[in-house]
Write a protein that binds this DNA or RNA. Structure first.
Lengths: 353, 353
DNA sequence: GATCGCAGCGCAATCGATTGCAGCATGAAA
DNA sequence: TTTCATGCTGCAATCGATTGCGCTGCGATC
C-alpha cells in the first residue's frame, strides 16, 4: 500500500521544490488529472487503457509522485487513521496491544494515532474530540475504567469503535478481552493443588471492569473449591498501591493467608516489596500469582507465576473487528474472548503449615 | 486548542447526520463562510466585529461545529501531525520518550503518529514515505542505528526532523541525547572506588551510535584511571544477547573480571541470568552496572545500579526542537545534551579478592 | 461638503485528489 | 451506410476550510 519513497524522487525536485501533484503528472503525461487518478488506483485502473496506465505510472515514478493522503481524505471522507486511546503507554501491558493493533492496521494502509488519558475522564473526552476533528475513521479504546456516557454518546453519533482489554457491559460496542475468569480459576486451582487453603485476592480499584470481573471470578472459584477467599481492593493498578495494600494486610493479620492472587502483575510486584520489608520470603512464606505476564515478569525474583493475557493478539483482534465494523461486515454484538494461560514460575510453592 | 466535544452537540444532529461544517454555521449565522473562519480563529478574530464574533461563536457552539482538521490541513499545508519513528515500542525506553514528545506536542495542537521499524532499514524507509504521504510536518527519529542515507536524502528534500537518543554524527539534523560519556565515566568511577580493577564492558551491537559512544567512553575512562578495561560486543540490545555474550565470557575466563558495565539495562539483565546459571552471585562475585534506568530496574534482584537517562525529558526537548525548526527559529546545528546520573543500587559492591 | 481612511465583511480562488457524467472515436452489427 | 454499443478519456463539481483582494459605508478631516 505504502509506496516506496525512493532515491529517484530527489533528482527531479532539486532543492525543496513543491511536492509533485496529480496535476503535475497529468501535464507531463499529457492527460487529464482524473485519468491519472484512475490509472494510479488499483481498483479503477481498468477504466483506463493498458497503454495509458503504463505511461502514466512511468511518469509518476519518474517525477517521484506521492499521493497526498490529506487531500484524498478530504474528498473520500476517510482518513485511513484510527484513534487509539490508552490510559498510559508506559504501563507495560499497552505497548504490546498497540503493536498488535498496528501490525494489523499498517498492511491495510491505516495508521494509528495513540493518545494517553492518564486515567482522566475529562482528558479522555477532550482527546476523543480532537481525534474526531482529525477525522479518524474509528477508535480502539483500551481505557479500563468505564466512561460509559462518552461511549454511549459516541455510539449515538454513529462513531465506530471497539473496546479492548475491558468489558463492554453497558457499552454498545464490540469488545476484545482475555478470558479473565478462566485465568483466575486456573490460578486458584493451582494454589489449591499446592495445598493452600486461605487465599487473598488483591483486587484492582473499583470502577475498572477488569477489577470486578477478576474479583468476582476469585470469589466464585473459592466457593467452588470450598476454600477461604478474601478480597482486598487497591487504590490503583500500580506497584505502590499493591505494596501499601499488602502492607496493611500483613501489619494486621500476618498468618491468615498463605497465598495471594493479584489482579495484575504490578500489584504482584508491590506484594513482593511488601513481603520483603516484612521479612517474608516468597514462595516459602507466601505464594504470589500475578496477572498479565507483562514484560519482565520472568525476571523478577522469584520469577512471577502469572496468568498470561495475549495482549498482542488482543490488539490484532480489536483492529480486525474495527475494520470489519467500518466495512459494515461486522456481525452485530460481536464479542471476542481470547484464551489465557497460567504460567507457573517460581513465586508459587507448597503452602506453609 | 482541542475544542471540547460536548453533550450539546448531539442534540442538533440526531442520528448520524453529516458533520456540521463552516458553511452550515455561516448559513445559520447569516454570514459568509470566510467570516466564520476568521471569527473562529483566535489570530484573525479581530478582523471581525466583536458583535459578529459573538454571534458566530454562539451559533457554532449550538450547532456543535467541529473544525475539520483534514480540510484545514489541505489549505494551510500543515497537518499538525508529527511522525515519530522508533525501533520497537515494547522496548521499555521508548514509551517514556514517546510520552515526553506527546506532552509537549499535544498542548500545542499537534498529534504524533508513532511507527515501529523493528530495526529494518527497509521498513524505516517505507514508513518514512508513508508518513510523508500523510503530510506530517516533521519527524522525530529514535532509531538507534545509523540509516544515514535516508536522513541525508530527507534533508535535501527539505524535510524537517530531529534525532533523539542517538548521535547525529554525519546526519544534518539536530539531536537530543543523554550525556552518555559522562554516565559511563560515573559508572567506571563508582566501580573503581569500590576497588574494582578489571572491568568488562558489554557493548551494544556495532552500528548503533550509542554503542560506539558508550564503548569509547568506557575505554577512555579506564585509561584515565589506569585500569584494565575490556570491551565485548553483543549482537543486539536484548536480554538474550546480553546473556549469551556474558555466557561466553564466563565460560572462558571466569575470574578475569570483577565488574561489568553493560551498554543498556537489557544487557545487564542478561548478565544477571548468565551469572545465575554460572552459580555466581551479584554483587558478591560480580558487580553489574546498567544503562538507562528503564522501568523495573529497581525491581530486579538485586536492584540494578544504572545510569539514568532522562527519556521523558529527551522526548520533550526533541519535540521542542522540532517545533522550533518548523517555526524557523532554530539556531542551526542545535544539539541538546541532557545530563545523566548514576543511580547506585544493590548490584554493585566491593570487589572480591 | 468633498475626500480620505479604515473597519467589517463578502467574493472567489485555492489546496490535491476523486468521481459521476458526458463526449468522442472506433469497431461491430444491421 | 447507418446505428448502436462500448471503451477510453476529459470536464467540472466536490470535499471543508483559508485568505488576498476589493467593495461598502461610516466617521473624521480640512
Amino acid at each position: 500500500m505504502a509506496r516506496r519513497w525512493g532515491l529517484d524522487a530527489g533528482r527531479y525536485r532539486s532543492t525543496m521544490r513543491k511536492r509533485v501533484t496529480l496535476t503535475d503528472v497529468a501535464k507531463v503525461a499529457g492527460v487529464h488529472p482524473g485519468t491519472v487518478s484512475r490509472a494510479l488506483t488499483d481498483a479503477t485502473q481498468d477504466q483506463v487503457s493498458q497503454e495509458t496506465v503504463r505511461r502514466i505510472r512511468k511518469v509518476a515514478k519518474e517525477l517521484g509522485y506521492t499521493p497526498n493522503t490529506v487531500a484524498r481524505g478530504l474528498r473520500t471522507n476517510k482518513s485511513m487513521t484510527i484513534g487509539v486511546i490508552v490510559p498510559d503507554l508506559t504501563n507495560p501491558i499497552f505497548p504490546p496491544i498497540v503493536r498488535g493493533i498496528d501490525s494489523f492496521l499498517a498492511p491495510r494502509g491505516y495508521s494509528s494515532l495513540v493518545v494517553n488519558t492518564d486515567g482522566s475522564d475529562e482528558t479522555e473526552r477532550n482527546l476523543f474530540g480532537s481525534l474526531l476533528e482529525r477525522q479518524v475513521d474509528g477508535f480502539i479504546i483500551a481505557t479500563g475504567h468505564s466512561n460509559h456516557q462518552l461511549m454511549v454518546e459516541a455510539h449515538e453519533r454513529g462513531v465506530q469503535a471497539v473496546m479492548v482489554n475491558r468489558d463492554a457491559a453497558g457499552v454498545p460496542y464490540p469488545a476484545v478481552t482475555g478470558d479473565d475468569s478462566q485465568g483466575i480459576f486456573a490460578g486458584v486451582k493451582h494454589l489449591v493443588e499446592l495445598g493452600h487453603k486461605r487465599l487473598l485476592h488483591l483486587a484492582g480499584p473499583a470502577g475498572f471492569s477488569t477489577s470486578r470481573i477478576r474479583a468476582d471470578a476469585f470469589v466464585a472459584a473459592c466457593r467452588q473449591v470450598v476454600i477461604d477467599g478474601h478480597v482486598v481492593h487497591t487504590t490503583a493498578y500500580s506497584v505502590a498501591a499493591g505494596q501499601s495494600a499488602m502492607d496493611k494486610v500483613l501489619d494486621q493479620k500476618l498468618d491468615e493467608y498463605t497465598a495471594v492472587i493479584a489482579s495484575n502483575d504490578l500489584l504482584a510486584l508491590g506484594t513482593y516489596h511488601s513481603l520483603r520489608t516484612h521479612g517474608l520470603r516468597c514462595p516459602e512464606d507466601m505464594s504470589v500469582v500475578g496477572f498479565n505476564d507483562m514484560l519482565f515478569a520472568n525476571d523478577f525474583q522469584p520469577p512471577l507465576t502469572t496468568v498470561r493475557s495475549p495482549h498482542f493478539e488482543m490488539g490484532v483482534e480489536a483492529a480486525r473487528l474495527l475494520l470489519n465494523e467500518i466495512a459494515g461486515t461486522l456481525p452485530s454484538g460481536a464479542r471476542v474472548t481470547l484464551p489465557v494461560s497460567l504460567i507457573v514460575r517460581g513465586s508459587t510453592g507448597p503452602a506453609r503449615k
